[in-house]
Nucleic acid binder design. Sequence first.
RNA 1: GCCCCCGUGGCUCAACGGAUAGAGCAAGUGAAUUCUAAUCACUAGAUUGGGGGUUCGAAUCCCUCCGGGGGCGCCA
Length: 564
Amino acid sequence: MLKQKILEDLKKVVKELGHKTIDIVLSIPKNPSFGDYTTNLVLQLAKVKSTKGKQIPTEIANEILQKFEKPDYLEKVEIAGRGFINFYIKNKELIKNTDGLGILQKSDNPQKVFIEYGHVNPLKEIHIGHLRTFILGESLSRIYDSLGHEVFRANYQGDIGLHIAKAIWGIRKLGLPSKQLNLEEKAKFLGQAYAEGNKSYEDPHIKKEIDQINTALYQKDPALKEIYTLAREWSLQYFEPIYELLGIKYDRCFFESEVFERGKEIILENMDSPREAGKIFEENAGAVIFPGEKYGLHTRVFITTAGNPTYEGKDMGLAELEYDTFNYDKSIHVVASEQEGYFQVIFKAMELIFPYLKGKKYHLSYGVVDLKEGKMSSRTGNVITVDDLYHVVSEKVREIMKQTKVHIDQEVVRMVALGAIKFSYLKFSPRPNMVFDLEESVSLEGDSGPYIQYTYARIQSVLRKTQKGVKNGFESIEVDTVERAILRSLLYFQETVEQAAATLHPNLLASYLVELARLYNLFYQGSRIIGSQKQDFRLKLSEEVGKVLEKGLYLLGIEAPERM
RNA sequence: GCCCCCGUGGCUCAACGGAUAGAGCAAGUGAAUUCUAAUCACUAGAUUGGGGGUUCGAAUCCCUCCGGGGGCGCCA
């Protein structure tokens, strides 16, 4: 890679000049007139004394430049601004670089990456807020995978606990419907049952009943088996079509019901006994707690007075099971930001119990999705479900397709609608909250998934019109400003994906793709491809842009239609 | 009370401590003999919530104030 070459050549010179070794960062100047890569290295070096004492930046830069034998892949190297060194790559090299685009170079340090996302609890309808974890998690999985890491996609769902107890109480009160229900009706019925139980929980008598059901569930009371199994099955079935729609295939779903016993056991094993103090967990007012204050965090209950493990408690069992399942180097939990405090505490507890987990656990915290009208609330009916969203967007796609030359194809409508939806999530940085507007948030033009898909389809259309196929070997060709901008942009694909992986920010890739598509559309608008003197080169350029767009979209979980 | 996050054009959002703060939407003006107009060009719109500080350089780091959101022992 050209970037690596520059870096190595630079390192050598810096070392020869006797400067302190620092991390040299080559970055991409926003403005192409500042080169294809730039470094602020001398500004860093000016801060520390070298063997020659303190020097001013330009002086160091000049020394470096004198020693730096301009490699043949560079057009020029310049000192600019207060002490930047800018590198300009030869067009020839940029063209050469396009060979094999669309296939990412594998990491030289491949890791096993465990990604846990989705985790919508049973009994909840899947709304546009939940979509964030699915879409982010899947994109990250694909990004890591494409860089040569081994990815394990996991889901974790709460199929035991107070919410289930509430639902069971509600089912008993409402009575099971006599007629056959379809998936959606089943989910709806369970939702009602849960709401009933939840409401009644405020009544002290009923609270007691529900708490008893809860404890009985944890004790695997056979009397509850039938109703529990039924409720569990119904609610889990509801998720299948969603995974299908979003194109997600989990390697494994984990359940609270399979980890709670071991979780409790782990906690008890790591608890103070009357003889022995200073262990990880303590008893307090009849419950077992983790004294987070000791570590600058807060205290949380891991086992309740009733002897049931809480979510925290179960997570200890889960941590062990997950690691045993897939000996990962890195584990990423894609979970809403409200859980930040929670994760700090359980990660601390985990690393105390399982020291080998230290430094391997990450919480990718994403912001909540609010509506323009305010917070979503199923109580007030102020909720947009995934189904609602998908239907509205599909309809909009159909509307536009009616006005185009391309005939309406259901598959394409699906791809574009999903592309629009997924992109509308991925273009944002994960952490900040999102404000969602059903009519406006999912865009089909401008800065959008369909914009990139359209650009791809446009390219395919051009390529289809040429029978001769695409040729190679244009190193000596003249390129204009726009063509060069495209070549320059193609150069950055690999490192953009790497950066997206390193920072857990797929939005970096999303922005990159929009920028590349924008450049291509600009080129397309201003330059004739077929029939021009540079036809072969322009076809080649188009093809490469197409490959990168297709791959980039794939990494975002988006399909690229051949026509739209 | 303690802790965390956020505040960037009218709206929704970008921006490894770097060069002139970028897009999209909305507004206005244009582009069709030509490979897909879900496109493109141009115009207008910002003291990056306020005030200090660190730095050669701050939207970004530190302090403080204001505004919004979230979290803090028996829920998940």
